[in-house]
Amino acid sequence: MRPRRPLDPRRQRLKLLALIAIFALPLMTAWAMVEWRIGIPEQRTAHGELVPDIPPLAQWPLTDRDSEADADTWLLAFDCSLDCAALADQWWRLHRALGREAPRLARLRIGGAGEALPGERLARWQGQAPAWQTPGRVWLLAPGGEALLTYSSEVEARDVLDDINHLLRVNPESRSQRERQVSQR
């Protein structure tokens, strides 16, 4: 049997420094990124445009007052004056793509002909449409009826779905008092 060599203190220190570096370098890198704003995006951008100047849904000149917003439901309102059947189908498919989050969103079709698709409400503009409305425009409204985002008629449904998923994720569902009582039993 060979005699054991004594441990080299320099080699042991080098191993210790390498171990410390493995854990410290990511922390120091993250600190430098935050401190000097290197490699960090300046902002998170939604695919739609923010619309602070559009009035709440209750003030929209609509013929159907059944279109009022629920307290817990997000609303996807869309102008259906151009190619209505295709638009209604596109937004119905987007609604289905939400999966288990679908009950948290309702759709409001403004204008157009034909029957309402499942989960869709129908309304029409009273007289002349407001100045902020353009054909094919889509609005995403928060619970309570405040307009958050608007999209042009050329928007990709995938982009709208990304924004809706993000909003539903950062705004968890509030359960009603009755649901809480049932779940506690």
Results as ranks from 00 to 15, higher is better:
89 D>S: 14
35 E>M: 04
34 V>M: 13
57 L>E: 01
36 W>S: 10
51 V>Y: 11
101 E>L: 15
64 D>T: 12
28 M>F: 03
103 P>N: 13
99 G>T: 05
82 L>Y: 01
44 R>S: 06
27 L>Q: 11
44 R>D: 07
78 F>Y: 15
82 L>E: 00
87 L>K: 04
83 D>I: 04
112 G>I: 00
77 A>I: 00
101 E>D: 15
72 D>M: 08
40 I>V: 12
89 D>C: 09
42 E>G: 14
55 P>F: 07
78 F>L: 02
87 L>W: 04
100 R>A: 14
45 T>N: 12
36 W>K: 15
60 W>Y: 12
81 S>N: 03
21 A>Y: 09
100 R>E: 11
54 I>D: 01
106 A>I: 06
107 R>V: 01
114 G>Q: 11
55 P>V: 02
69 A>K: 02
93 R>K: 06
92 W>T: 05
108 L>S: 09
30 A>G: 04
84 C>T: 02
115 E>H: 04
32 A>C: 11
106 A>D: 09
104 R>P: 07
91 W>V: 00
103 P>W: 15
87 L>M: 04
21 A>V: 08
39 G>M: 09
107 R>Q: 02
83 D>H: 03
34 V>T: 13
29 T>A: 10
50 L>H: 12
46 A>W: 05
29 T>P: 08
52 P>H: 09
37 R>S: 05
91 W>H: 02
105 L>C: 13
77 A>K: 00
66 D>R: 12
32 A>V: 13
77 A>H: 00
27 L>T: 07
55 P>Q: 05
21 A>K: 12
108 L>P: 08
100 R>Q: 10
68 E>M: 13
35 E>W: 12
58 A>N: 12
89 D>Q: 15
21 A>L: 10
33 M>K: 14
62 L>F: 01
53 D>A: 04
22 I>F: 13
40 I>P: 06
96 R>G: 05
79 D>C: 05
82 L>W: 03
98 L>G: 11
27 L>W: 07
90 Q>L: 10
89 D>G: 09
49 E>V: 13
